[in-house]
Design a protein around this nucleic acid. Sequence first.
RNA 1: GCGGCCAUAGCUCAACUGGUUAGAGCGCUGGACUGUGACUCCAGAGGUUACCGGUUCGAUCCCGGUUGGCCGCCCCA
Length: 423
Amino acid sequence: MSQKISGVKGMNDILPGEVEIWQFVERTARELFARFGYGEVRTPMVEDTALFVRSVGEETDIVGKEMYTFEDKGGRSLSLRPEGTAPAARAYIEHSVVNQEPLTRWYYLGPMFRYERMKTGRYRQFHQIGAEAYGSREPAQDVELMDMVVQLLQKLGLTEVSLNINSLGDEACRPTYQAKLVEHLRGHAGELCGDCQRRLESNPLRVLDCKVERCQQIAQAAPSILESLCEPCRAHFDEVQRKLTALDIRFQVNPRIMRGLDYYTRTAFEFIAAHPALGTASTVGGGGRYDKLVKGLGGPDVPAVGFGLGLDRLCLLLKESGQKFAAPVDLFVAVADAGSSDVAFSLVSRLRREGLVVEFDTRGGSLKSQMKRADKTGARFALVLGEAERESGQAQLKPMAGGEPISVRLDEVARVVREAPSR
RNA sequence: GCGGCCAUAGCUCAACUGGUUAGAGCGCUGGACUGUGACUCCAGAGGUUACCGGUUCGAUCCCGGUUGGCCGCCCCA
């Protein structure tokens, strides 16, 4: 017996039985996003480390301590992507997409990597579905993306998710606000928790997020960023809300929504699930506008807005919902005597060619054990093939849920099964 | 990165303050029922009690370390 090797911490296997949930979410998202005119972009899982340092921000937790960074044999510093927006923007710039179309809509889907402490709904290899729209600075673009998420959640049957929105201002008004906030917080510096005293210097906006009661009280009394927005940001935010309302999308303005990544400007939003299964990992998706990102990465001055959804978390919620996602088995073919196995095997092959989902036990075995297997697979029908059927060309199609068997000719099986009412 | 809890069969859990062969339910396999699943009954397979070391006549149980998991903080998807 060789040494047992286990998977890497924080990186999970997804086995049949569970993978169907993932496929369902992915399939639903692809169909819906295509309907909105978004095309899939696939970028490598590894990028130049500098891409993330410049876009996500050197001071963020992600870049500061969570990236899987390594040197390749050519001495380049590479990193496993911790998020999807920066690689998409890099590809957008690299292929001069702006010169080919003024408005670009992309989505992506795949694994991301962050070296973090493991928790439910929080893994080191996790999966995101995200979308990006480049070229429009209009509020309608922000709302279109939120609408897309809302519709996706609806199609997935996840109704207990609420949309929170905020505006983070832009380079004109955010510094002003931050100064005002720091001034307010300094007045209560002694009362803040240890973390917040530190945040006062590193990232004062984060204090608004603190869960400590006293800090919350102080944050409550702090000036709101929404009161400090410059006129263009104010107008943008108002229009976003008006359009959401016009689409009948329920939302909540939440001045405490912040972003952990530096590139956000103006609109920020989060989709938060109420379900206890996620614990503190209740945010299933987040996004916002980043008008300076593309230019900041050396591209043209093109505005952008996008979101990322946590696939792992969506799947956890769906698992809790108890829905079944496996493709139903149409038919189980059982062999009654050894002399029939070749005929049965050919029949199975033909039925599969004709589009039926057919189960068959290649090991043979007793008829009883095959029928047990048929029951386990959840097959709608079972068909026993033996000497009598071979000679007559007729067989009994047995509905596993109960009811009278149907007598069919062997060359009619596919048609009869297909026409039978499901379940 | 900080604080707390936990680790026994594929899964969910037992094992009386440290005592002989570590049990049950579910699941899996076979049989009762030799051409028909489910319900019932019977039987079987499956464990280095996560790993390493220590204390002891004796450790699943006590102690230390490692690894993995859970909860809160932080952060986020």
